[in-house]
Design a protein around this nucleic acid. Structure first.
Length: 325
DNA sequence: CATCAGGGCCCTG
DNA sequence: CAGGGCCCTGAT
């Protein structure tokens, strides 16, 4: 199995996302744990794309403004890409970064919302995005289960180095996940030796599920949230929090807001109520009542804001305590 | 040194 | 539907 890809051939196209589209806060989410799956600099984003058994390197470059957005998509590949394949790649990138999604209604609706409007001004045009496919994001969600961030970071690193692929293009090196067909055959003990603990079983079982039940991301993208959620929850190892991550990030459902994990509860309590701890039920009701069909997108404006502040060097003591990097 | 919870989930009673 | 157990690690 080939593990290192050097991609030198390039094809470039400039796309016009639906306005408003704010490049930086859309492609980069500072609340996420650091991983070797992507690289980001202001105005630029690199990530690997696995599509139909082929591997590409994608570089996104901001060439426009929030109100008049343009994004250059540079596709790095081994060989010349046939036209139909090219189209598929562009469609996939568009989906993952919401180039075609019109969220202008969201801003219109809450322009005067007392709580939300300062955040909308600050991050106007921020969309949801996910560089990974559904399977990749599921792997990330498993790394996050019942542990501290530091360990998630470590497990991600060793697993990618041993089973992932390294993709080199544009003087960058980024990793992507193994294929489920490969992971389902790895002996559990071999994974346990990498100190991933009982997650070993989950990597294998979920991979098996993806292969045997032919979980089709394209199909799930078209289904209503609730049905998708039920299907995801049937996967062994996927519970409410993992389902939430997949629905919100990989499948871009901006409306649901039904689950808050304990660490998120502490952060939302501060951000929304300026209190140490407010009940999960109260947080959910507050967000749903206020922002309804845009509940999750709205919450993400408030959520990512504090992490941007942190990234930009602001010391927020109560937050440091909750994230434990 | 021991104990324990942490960016969950499954299983049991 | 509540509660115990699970891998491992660093904090206490």
């Amino acid at each position: 199995m080939k593990r290192v890809f050097n991609l030198n051939r390039t094809f470039s196209v400039t796309l016009k996302p639906v306005s408003p589209y704010n490049f930086d806060p859309t492609v980069f989410k500072p609340s996420h744990y650091p991983d070797p799956l992507k690289d980001y600099e202001p105005g630029k984003y690199w990530f690997p794309l696995r599509l139909n058994d082929k591997v590409y390197g994608i570089k996104l470059v901001n060439k426009g403004t929030t109100r008049n957005p343009k994004v250059q998509v540079v596709i790095f590949s081994k060989a010349k890409i046939p036209k139909n394949e090219l189209e598929e790649i562009i469609n996939e990138v568009s989906y993952r970064f919401e180039f075609q999604r019109d969220i202008s209604g969201f801003f219109k609706k809450f322009k005067k919302d007392k709580v939300l409007s300062p955040f909308l001004k600050k991050w106007y045009g921020m969309h949801g995005s996910c560089a990974q496919d559904l399977y990749g994001l599921l792997m990330i969600a498993i790394f996050l289960q019942n542990t501290v961030i530091k360990r998630s970071v470590q497990m991600t690193k060793v697993m990618l180095e041993k089973y992932g692929i390294k993709v080199k293009f544009d003087n960058k090196e980024v990793y992507y996940f193994w294929k489920p067909e490969e992971m389902m055959k790895v002996p559990e003990q071999e994974l346990r030796d990498l100190k991933v603990g009982y997650r070993a079983k989950l990597f294998i079982k979920t991979s098996e599920t993806f292969v045997k039940e032919k979980i089709d991301e394209k199909e799930l993208r078209k289904l209503p949230v609730e049905e998708t959620k039920q299907r995801l929850l049937k996967i062994y190892g996927v519970g409410p929090e993992t389902a939430r991550i997949l629905l919100v990030e990989a499948l871009h459902h901006h409306d649901i807001f039904e689950h808050v994990a304990p660490w998120q509860q502490k952060i939302y309590s501060r951000l929304l109520f300026n209190k140490k701890l407010v009940s999960v039920d109260k947080i959910i009701k507050y967000i749903k009542n206020k922002w309804g069909e845009w509940a999750n997108l709205a919450a993400s404006y408030i959520w990512e804001d504090i992490f941007w502040q942190r990234k930009q060097g602001k010391k927020i003591e109560w937050l440091e305590k909750e994230i434990r990097l």
